[in-house]
Each structure stands twice: as structure tokens, then as C-alpha cells.
Design a protein around this nucleic acid. Structure first.
Lengths: 176, 176
DNA sequence: GTCTATAAGCGGATAGAC
DNA sequence: GTCTATCCGCTTATAGAC
């Protein structure tokens, strides 16, 4: 599952073959099918990895006493990942974008939406705890800014984009 | 070229076959190869379509006297496209994201970056004309917000995300 | 310049030995 | 539960008639 998430992040779903994932995991191709009946099952597993990763991150941030500090630490984490973002974009965002183009895919696109929604809801909770008005709108703005800066960082192949936007987001959080 | 841009926007590069584009253009598959030697040539043609589209839009906006009104009209245009964004995302952004995952692809990913940069530079020019400080940073923020809200709109399959973020961006432009 | 037919190769999926 | 060998369909690309 971790190999699937990693290779899919780097190559995208469609350019990733079962053989690629099997090689990354150190097992022969055929063996993968014992655990995952179809390629889509592997994509679902990659999405589950993203969910787990997100849950670990928010659990860690929840240990901070101040919600504003939690959000600023979240932004700090994004900035730290800037080189990965410059090369491959946001793992969840690029996956959601790719899955969003499918017509009838057994709801994999909706699964991707759920992971994004999980982050949105956690962020919204922080804004609510701060007593700010329209916490859902603020969450949309913050997560949208993250996805936007990740895409620009990736498209321009320039980690500095993330640094600059990260600084702006931090100042914005402080101004609220 | 227009069929290529359209089908690639809806299906993504990798899920689009030459036959798909040929059918959309109303010609037999083999004939496509008379004009485009490889599939990548078709992707390049789709990118050229995006560039042309962008140039038409900015030329139209340039007829407005006030740069702030130009930017607000740009945002209005994004909001009008919200249903398309909910279904398939931003044509240029999703294409750039997909091409960004390639390793050695003859610079197609860089071409996608150029289209994004074209929009960034036009937006930056408007902010500069308004005499605002750090016009390049403001451009990054505005275009980033656009890409972010497009991705969220698409991932959540909810055009309302674009409506809400569009309203916020309009208010933000007015506040500068 | 347009179209049909087909070659060549890749990738998802399976069969079956171990 | 693991691995090898293989099938089958699909997609890119080409050959060649018209």
C-alpha cells in the first residue's frame, strides 16, 4: 500500500503499472493480485494511505494547545514539503484531479473527495475553536490556497512559490 | 486541435486515445497521424489551444479601462465556468498537473508551465498598473487561489465552492 | 490529403506449479 | 501464500490503396 501511494504520487495513476508498484514493493507482479484483485483496488489502497497519513498529522497537531498554532504548524509542514511538491505536486490533490476525470469508476473519485473533505473539516474545526465567523469558508480558503500553491509550485517547478505563499498564509492566520 | 484540447480536458492525457480525439473531430483514426506524428504532438497542440484561449481572454479584458475591473472580470469568468470546473477542473491546471508527473517527456511539462506563467504575468501587470507593492506575489496569490478553488470544486464536485471563493476574491480585489 | 487494414508492443489479469 | 508463464485486449503507429 505504501509503495502504491508512493509510485502513484510520482507517476500518476495511469502511467503507473502494476509491475511498477510490485517492483517498488520488492515482489513479483503476479503476487500483487493475491492482495489486490484489480488496479483500482491498488488506487483505493493508495487513497487509504493518504487518509492514514492525514490522520497521523492532525493527531500530532492536536497536541498543540492553541488552534491558531496548529494551523500555522500545518502551513509550516506544507512549506517543508516544498521540494516534493515542486517535483510531484500534492499527493492527494493531484490524485483527486486525476480521478476526477473518470466517468464511472466505482466511486474512486468520491473517495478522493472524502480525503480532501477530511482535511477541510479538521481545518474548519480549528477556525471554529478560534471563534471566527464562517469557519467553513475560511477552511475552503486555506485548503484552496494550499492546493493552488502546490499546483503552481509543481507547474513552475519552483519550491520558492511555496515559501512565499506559505509566509503569506502564516501572516494571514496571525491577522485573523 | 480544438477536439484534442476538449477531450484531453475531459478525460486527461493518459486516458485519451488517438481514436477518441479522431472521433471527436469526425475523422478516421489513421488520418490524425498525417497532421500529428505522435500522441505528444497532439498534447502540445492542446496546450497551444490553451495559450490561444488565454490570449483571447486577456485581449478582451484589456479593453476595460481599469486594471482592477479587468481582474474582477477575470474572476467573474472563472465563476461562470464553475460547472465545467466541477466536472473536469481547470483545463490548464489539470493538464499541467498530469504533465508534471512525467520524467523525460520532451519538455511538455515545461510548455504547460509556460501557459500558467503567461496568466501570472498578465495578472502581475494589472497589479503593477494599480501601483501595488509586490505585484508578482499578488499574482501568485490570485492565480493560486483560482487553481486551488478549481481543484476543490472538482474534488468535491460542488460548483458552489467556486461561487464562494469567487466572491471572496472579488472583495479582496476591492480591498487592495 | 484521406482512409482502411494491420503490425507491434504493452499492460491488466489469470492459470497453475510450488 | 508466492512466483512464473502466459493470454488477451487495447493503443500507438505505420503501410499502402485511393
Amino acid at each position: 500500500m505504501s509503495a502504491a501511494a508512493d509510485v502513484v504520487h510520482r507517476q500518476g495513476v495511469e502511467r503507473t503499472t502494476i509491475a511498477d508498484i510490485a517492483r517498488a514493493a520488492g515482489v513479483p507482479t503476479g503476487n500483487v493480485y493475491y492482495y489486490f484483485k484489480t488496479k483500482d483496488d491498488l488506487v483505493a489502497a493508495a487513497l487509504a494511505e493518504h487518509t492514514g497519513q492525514l490522520e497521523r498529522i492532525t493527531a500530532e497537531l492536536d497536541r498543540l494547545p492553541d488552534p491558531r498554532e496548529r494551523l500555522k504548524a500545518l502551513v509550516r509542514g506544507w512549506v517543508e514539503q516544498r521540494d516534493l511538491a515542486a517535483r510531484y505536486g500534492c499527493p492527494t490533490g493531484t490524485l483527486a484531479a486525476e480521478l476526477g476525470k473518470r466517468s464511472a469508476d466505482g466511486g474512486l473519485d468520491a473517495e478522493a473527495g472524502k480525503v480532501i473533505r477530511l482535511l477541510l473539516e479538521w481545518v474548519e474545526g480549528q477556525f471554529r475553536e478560534l471563534g471566527l465567523p464562517e469557519p467553513d469558508g475560511l477552511a475552503l480558503t486555506l485548503v484552496g490556497a494550499y492546493q493552488g500553491m502546490s499546483l503552481l509550485t509543481n507547474a513552475l517547478r519552483d519550491p520558492d512559490v511555496t515559501v512565499r505563499e506559505g509566509a503569506r498564509l502564516t501572516a494571514w492566520l496571525d491577522s485573523l
